Amino acid sequence: MKLSEGQKLWWVPQHRLGMKGREVTVLKVGRKWAELDNGERIDLETLISDVGRYAPNGRCYLSQEAYKQAEALVQAWIKLKRDLQYGRIPEDVTIGDIELARLLLGMTSNAKLPKERLNTEGE
């Protein structure tokens, strides 16, 4: 990831008890770390703060909108996991549907899916 001095990022604290995200500015960019105006330094690849051996204090996103999109993805994933864990198998779901879902979610590289549901145009 290419960051530059003066660039604005969106900082989100790890433990959000009463704390909200806020805009921060990159003060200095090194080979591995970028120093921020909030006293943190972040990894250039992950944008996660560095605090030694302990859990990170937070992380940055390229914008507040990027953070909102990432958070929406996490919430959608949590909802899907909950629905799968506590839901029943719908009557019309096939093994092919399940394998296709796994393939779409990157959970398998198996390209040999049952053909019964792969061509759903015209249904």
Rank of each mutant, 00 (worst) to 15 (best):
I95Q: 14
T108L: 06
I89L: 15
D92A: 14
K81E: 05
R102H: 03
E65C: 08
D97T: 14
E99F: 04
W77M: 12
L80R: 06
I89K: 10
L80S: 08
R88D: 10
G87Y: 01
G96C: 02
E91F: 03
Y67T: 02
V93D: 09
K68R: 13
A72C: 09
L105W: 08
Q75G: 02
K112Y: 10
R88C: 13
P114F: 02
Q64I: 10
K115M: 14
K115Y: 14
E99Y: 07
K79Y: 11
N110G: 00
A70V: 04
I89M: 12
K68A: 11
A101D: 01
R102P: 07
S63E: 01
L100Y: 12
I78L: 09
L113M: 06
R88T: 10
L84P: 04
Q85C: 05
L113Q: 07
V74A: 14
W77T: 07
R82K: 10
K81G: 06
A76D: 13
Q69I: 14
D97I: 02
W77F: 15
R102Q: 08
W77Q: 13
L100E: 08
I98D: 03
D92S: 15
E71S: 03
K68V: 14
D92N: 11
E71K: 15
K79S: 12
K79A: 13
V74Y: 04
V93E: 10
E99Q: 12
Q75R: 08
I89F: 12
L113C: 01
A76F: 06
G96F: 11
V74H: 03
T108E: 10
Y67K: 02
A66V: 00
S63W: 00
Q64K: 13
D83Q: 05
L113E: 03
L105T: 03
A111M: 10
A111V: 10
L105V: 06
Y67V: 00
L80Q: 03
Q75L: 05
E71P: 07
S63I: 00
V93A: 04
I78C: 07
D97Q: 04
P114G: 00
R88V: 15
W77S: 11
Y86N: 15
M107D: 11
T94R: 05
L104V: 12
R88A: 12
E71W: 11
S63C: 02
